[in-house]
Amino acid sequence: MSEPEVAARGSAALLGPAEVRDLAQRLGVRPTKQLGQNFVHDANTVRRIVAAAGVGRSDTVLEVGPGLGSLTLALLDVVDSVVAVEIDPVLARQLPSTVERRAPELADQLRVVEADALRVGSADLPLRPTALVANLPYNVAVPVLLHLMAEFPSITVALVMVQAEVADRLAASPGGRVYGVPSVKAGFFGTVRRAGAVGTQVFWPAPRVDSGLVRIDRYVDPPWPTDAEHRRRVFAVVDAAFAQRRKTLRAALASWAGTPAEAERKLLAADISPTARGETLDTAAYVRLAAQE
């Protein structure tokens, strides 16, 4: 969906800085680092996130950590269904009331699930999501993202806001300084790219670091098997390779393969140099390596 279409439908009264603070005070909510809570209070930012996701009326959006509802309201302006997963019981109970008050005509499009996003499964959601759009809790952003992409293959696009450093890692290319486990694992599900930068001033409380938007477009025709067992094997190789990233793969993968010699055999069979290091391989190379018997 284009930005003009997003603007044309909008009817929700979005939350601003004063509304966010007043609502938090009324609820007795004090943002905690433990839950990674930083609430967005800038209407232009949430509209930009929704536009970058490209979601439309036919989408069912999964939102994680909706907080006070800033992004939720912007999403409801554009899509017909939002399933919001919130771990904080106070915030989970309040969100429907906030939507009812600020956008009553959109209230029946929201469903709230009080749950931990790291443990939520398909049986916990009332609808099958087609997109993930979220300001992810900073302290668990990567595990949550990978869990949801694995748990819900119906998600065709993910647009998440994370710490800028984490965004760089997720979207990094092989050989770069920040390329690592998150880069390879995110690339297992689809194409990953940076989708924008977000400063600290749009949050309350303001975080100490900038944020970034990351978009994952799931492969329409996956280039490799995507079942849980195959993913587990691939991720095990990735974890082993980066656990000792300064070592050659022959040495780093010795425990995974059983011996350095066996690691070398598997690497050569996968057309990978035993003297290469983990940060030089793309996701496809790790998939080939995991397939070696």
Score class of each variant (00 low, 15 high):
R218W: 12
L281A: 11
A254L: 12
S183H: 08
R177H: 13
A13L: 14
G278T: 07
V55K: 09
V178Q: 14
A51M: 05
L146P: 00
G180Q: 13
V166C: 01
R21I: 02
T98D: 02
T156R: 15
L249Y: 06
L170C: 10
R57F: 02
A263Y: 01
P126Q: 11
G180P: 11
D227G: 13
M1V: 11
G67M: 08
Y286Q: 11
M1L: 12
W204R: 03
A150L: 07
A92M: 08
D271A: 15
L127D: 12
L148R: 05
A115L: 06
D221W: 04
R119V: 04
L106H: 01
V160C: 10
A117N: 05
T226L: 08
K185T: 06
A206K: 14
V192K: 04
G278P: 08
A12W: 02
V209H: 11
S70G: 15
A251Y: 00
A141E: 00
N38F: 04
E100G: 14
R177P: 05
P223K: 13
R265V: 10
S70V: 03
E279N: 10
L148M: 08
V144Y: 01
R101D: 13
S81A: 15
A195L: 12
P174S: 11
A276C: 07
L253K: 06
G67C: 12
A263H: 05
P96G: 09
A197C: 00
F189W: 13
R288P: 04
P17F: 08
L95V: 00
V181S: 01
G212K: 09
V82Y: 05
P104W: 07
V61H: 06
V214F: 01
F235A: 06
D271Y: 03
A164K: 15
T72Y: 04
A228E: 15
W256V: 00
G176S: 15
N38H: 15
V287I: 10
L253Y: 09
D217H: 10
P143F: 09
K247D: 10
